[in-house]
Simulated assay, not measured.
Amino acid sequence: MNEYFKLVNFEVRRFSKLFLTLIVAVTVVQIIGAFMTSFNFMERVETTMAQKQLGESEYVLEYGAYNFQNFIFSEYFILSIVFAATILVIYVFFIWYRDWLGKSSFIYRLLMLPTARRNIYFAKLTAILLFVLCLVGVQIALIEVVQQIIHGIIPDQLRVDQSKAYIYSFDVLSFLYPKTPLLFILLYGLGATVVAVVFTAILFERSYHLKGILLGAIYIIISILVIAIPVIIQDITGYLYLNEIIGLTAVTSILTLGVALYLADYLLKRKINV
């Protein structure tokens, strides 16, 4: 177990500088977005009020007040989320292929460590999950910062202050922050399963090379179909309730994760030689 934690620490430190850069980039873009959407709104308000001789209350009745959706659906917020997600998806592949790249493949040094090879796999998977959860936590803090910026620029009379529950019910945020602990575990557990499947597909490619690309692709397709069995059954029959779909998805995800871990352990032990 101690070796596993050392490997996790090692993987986190390898990506830490780029990850901090990613956090800074997302933070800067969203803060700029908060200022820009607020200033643009106030500019439109002042121009319209001057042209039509309206008071603040009259403007709100005719054109509506600023609400947090103005920021959530802006390109600043959406693109920052897409950018962060894209970087992490790329890193899911890079975390493995980096170790094989270069004149002296670092993966062989890892495989020769006095620890079970599966710990390398688990450490990389854990590192990805930690990065995702860290970004999710940073986003919570950013929402609070953005709200304070908006409140400082737009007067009370010209904005609608929405509850936390309402803000986190928006599509993007409800996906990042599920409403219940069970949904949180299911959603992020499903995400971990998908990452594990991709990791195992990469090991297929590393083990069998050209043939491994085909094997990895077939494996990913089968895994997706297994996870999607409840949705497929619902589409065909229409008999399942939402709770049943969630429960069956949890079962198929656990099954898929178990197979991914077993295959990865087998490939690391038997097919990847030092």
Rank of each mutant, 00 (worst) to 15 (best):
T126H: 01
L240Q: 04
Q139I: 10
K211E: 12
N40W: 10
K164E: 08
E144R: 05
E3D: 14
G33E: 01
Y188H: 11
Y66E: 04
R270N: 15
L210Q: 11
L7S: 07
L173M: 08
V29E: 01
E205W: 11
V24W: 13
I140G: 02
L187P: 01
A116F: 07
T37V: 15
I153Y: 12
G137R: 01
T86Y: 14
L248N: 02
E3G: 11
G212Y: 14
V82S: 08
T193A: 08
D161R: 10
Y168P: 07
L101T: 09
G238Y: 10
V138I: 09
L214H: 12
A85E: 08
S16Y: 11
Y63N: 02
L54S: 05
L210C: 03
I224T: 09
T47F: 12
A116R: 15
V251A: 12
E46Q: 14
W96I: 00
A196M: 03
V60N: 06
S57W: 00
L111Y: 09
A217F: 11
F71S: 06
A217R: 10
Y108L: 04
Y177E: 04
N40P: 00
V259C: 07
N273M: 09
W100I: 03
V274D: 04
T237D: 11
V274M: 03
P114S: 01
S253F: 02
G64L: 05
L129K: 04
R98W: 04
L125P: 10
S207F: 14
V172T: 12
L214C: 03
K269S: 07
G216C: 07
T47E: 14
F19E: 05
A84M: 08
S207M: 01
T37P: 07
K179T: 08
L225K: 04
E43S: 06
D171F: 14
T27Q: 03
P114D: 00
N243L: 13
I87F: 12
I232W: 05
I153T: 11
V194I: 14
T200H: 10
L268R: 02
N119R: 12
I153S: 05
C134T: 15
V82T: 03
F73V: 04
D156R: 10
L54H: 08
L22G: 15
A165C: 02
I232N: 04
T126C: 04
D171A: 13
I185T: 11
I81M: 11
T27V: 09
Y97V: 05
L263G: 02
P178W: 13
V160A: 08
Y76T: 06
T27D: 02
I221S: 06
S207N: 05
A260S: 15
T48N: 03
F94V: 14
I128H: 06
A196V: 01
I227H: 08
Y4V: 00
A228C: 03
L142Q: 05
I81Y: 14
P114T: 00
